[in-house]
């Protein structure tokens, strides 16, 4: 027997150092805490943009100046209560909606080309970011983003509210040869997107996948069977360039923000 056993206070550590299984179990427990505490509540606390997939939300507490709760239907588009009931009639300001078929195809290209490595989609609540990019981003705005695209680096500007800021023609020119439009830009030329047709079959499958997500699926009332069936037609004859532009133009104009409302707490 060594003298480890004589000193009670170090006995546990000594036991751990001698026992592989004990070290394994205690380490496995110790590393589990942080993740559980930080992640699990985000699935049930309010204001995390977590919907039940049927239009219901974890109770919201976005409040206006008088302290009245803002109806969730004003933030996230709900065809049942909105004046505009279909994808075709949806207007900016009607609330957060999922992407159309063409936008979905464009988003896939956006991810494929690694755009998120240089362009964030998350505006922070600072004066300079408000002046430069617009209203700060809120949780609900990325609730349909399977694989969020907030990014971590701004080699180029933030894109969270780029939708509608520039014309389609500007985007086309800029995406093809960025330095023709912005001489100081370091962005690669994406002219080749114009030669690639959109993969219709893949886009249709993607829409379907979005409806079967375990968390924040797109409600079947929005991606109706009829809509998915007609999706192939919507992207017919479109290029990846058209798709990316459609995606960019859809970013950030869904919600009509009101003065004095706190959208984060």
């Amino acid at each position: 027997m060594s003298d480890h056993d004589k000193i009670y206070s170090t006995k546990l550590q000594d036991k751990i150092e001698r026992n592989t299984l004990l070290l394994f179990v205690l380490t496995a427990i110790a590393v589990a805490f942080g993740g559980i505490v930080e992640i699990v509540p985000l699935f049930y606390l309010p204001n995390t943009g977590m919907s039940g997939g049927d239009g219901t939300f974890n109770n919201t507490s976005h409040k206006d100046k008088q302290g009245n709760a803002i109806s969730m239907d004003k933030i996230v588009w709900n065809p049942a209560t909105s004046a505009h009931k279909t994808f075709d009639t949806w207007q900016p300001g009607d609330g957060v909606r999922p992407y159309t078929a063409l936008e979905t195809a464009g988003r896939q290209v956006f991810i494929r080309e690694g755009c998120f490595l240089c362009h964030s989609q998350m505006i922070r609540p600072f004066r300079d970011e408000k002046d430069r990019y617009g209203h700060y981003s809120i949780a609900e705005e990325s609730m349909y983003d399977h694989t969020y695209q907030w990014g971590s680096k701004r080699t180029g500007p933030d894109l969270a509210r780029v939708g509608g800021k520039y014309s389609d023609e500007w985007h086309r020119k800029h995406l093809k040869y960025p330095r023709d439009v912005v001489p100081e830009s370091v962005m690669p030329n994406f002219f080749f997107l114009e030669n690639n047709p959109v993969n219709a079959e893949k886009t249709v499958k993607t829409l379907h996948v979005m409806t079967i997500m375990p968390f924040n699926p797109v409600p079947k009332t929005i991606y109706t069977d009829a809509y998915i069936a007609g999706a192939a037609k919507e992207v017919e004859g479109k290029t990846e360039m058209d798709a990316v532009i459609a995606y960019l133009q859809s970013l950030g104009n869904h919600v009509k923000f009101e003065e004095g409302v706190n959208y984060r707490d």
Binding site: S2, D3, H4, I7, S9, T10, Q13, D14
Partner: peptide, 13 residues
């Protein structure tokens, strides 16, 4: 626990 001088020897063994 770790910095208690009494435990130094065993922890360092």
């Amino acid at each position: 626990l770790v910095f208690n001088p009494k435990n130094k020897e065993t922890f360092n063994s």
